[in-house]
Simulated scan of single mutants.
Amino acid sequence: MIEVERAGRSFTHRRKAGVLRRERHVVHAVRDLTFSVAPGEFVGYLGPNGAGKSTTIKMLTGILTPTTGRVRVAGLDPSRRRTALARRIGVVFGQRTTLWWDLPLRDSFELVRHLYNVDQGDFRRRLAELEELLDLGSFLHIPVRQLSLGQRMRGDLAAALLHAPSVLVLDEPTIGLDVVSKAALRAFLRELNAERGTTVLLTTHDLGDVERLCSRVMVIDHGRLSFDGTLGDLRATAPEESSIEDVVARLYTGGG
């Protein structure tokens, strides 16, 4: 469902090197990145700030074009087929919403229906299902700006799923949520993956998300993949008494 082959992404900027001179400086955000995700996998994509996670997501969703290598999602080149890809994937960013700030949540969903040209019957059926699974009913009439963070997060997730995508990309979906909201969101994602077979790529700093949701873990650091395997494989890279936080931290610093 996701194929990344020797992908790289670099950025060029100029920095001051004297009173009148500037030097050209190249930053390699991602280097020689190769991995694939099979249909129905739930994969955790971990790394410290600046490791290349966001750059990878932007390449997978077509926001950025790889400088080198090849990327395919659902068989499509994301940067060349962004409109077609949008109908196959859903994206949720924990730190920013895709909903309309001043509209009631229900009206935001109606706009999403028009954007994706979802059949009215399919829309009503999916919204009813998502309303029940995510417990949306009590705040569908409330403007998005008045929702709590947990409510908004559930709204964003529902909006990303209304067009029934085969791939779901989640960027820090539980950031800032309380314990109850986190548990509800994790339960929903488990069911979505198990019952519908939705392929999920999750970036997070919350290792509780990884332990409860992911069948596979990838760790990226300095733009390169430093680990790819199961959570059990990851634990096996460190002494038995180490916590999962310790194991991942060692990989971040190149100790794994």
Results as ranks from 00 to 15, higher is better:
2 I>R: 13
4 V>P: 01
5 E>A: 10
7 A>V: 07
9 R>T: 11
9 R>A: 10
11 F>K: 10
12 T>F: 13
13 H>M: 13
20 L>T: 08
25 H>M: 14
29 A>Y: 05
32 D>L: 06
35 F>K: 00
37 V>R: 12
39 P>C: 04
43 V>P: 06
45 Y>V: 02
45 Y>I: 03
46 L>W: 10
49 N>L: 05
53 K>V: 08
53 K>F: 12
55 T>R: 11
57 I>H: 12
59 M>Q: 10
63 I>G: 03
63 I>S: 03
67 T>H: 04
70 R>Y: 03
71 V>A: 07
74 A>H: 04
74 A>Y: 03
77 D>I: 08
97 T>G: 14
98 T>L: 11
105 L>T: 12
108 S>R: 05
109 F>H: 13
109 F>A: 10
126 R>E: 15
126 R>K: 11
129 E>H: 13
132 E>I: 00
137 G>F: 05
137 G>T: 05
137 G>L: 03
142 I>W: 01
147 L>C: 13
149 L>H: 10
155 G>Q: 12
157 L>A: 07
158 A>K: 09
161 L>T: 05
162 L>R: 05
167 V>E: 04
167 V>Q: 01
171 D>E: 11
174 T>A: 15
178 D>Y: 08
181 S>W: 09
184 A>R: 15
184 A>H: 14
187 A>W: 02
188 F>L: 07
189 L>C: 06
190 R>I: 02
198 T>I: 09
203 T>D: 09
206 D>N: 14
206 D>T: 05
210 V>T: 10
219 V>D: 00
219 V>M: 00
220 I>E: 00
222 H>K: 14
227 F>Y: 15
229 G>S: 09
230 T>M: 04
238 A>G: 01
238 A>T: 01
240 E>P: 08
240 E>A: 14
243 S>N: 06
243 S>C: 04
244 I>V: 15
249 A>T: 09
250 R>A: 04
252 Y>I: 00
252 Y>M: 00
253 T>M: 04
256 G>C: 01
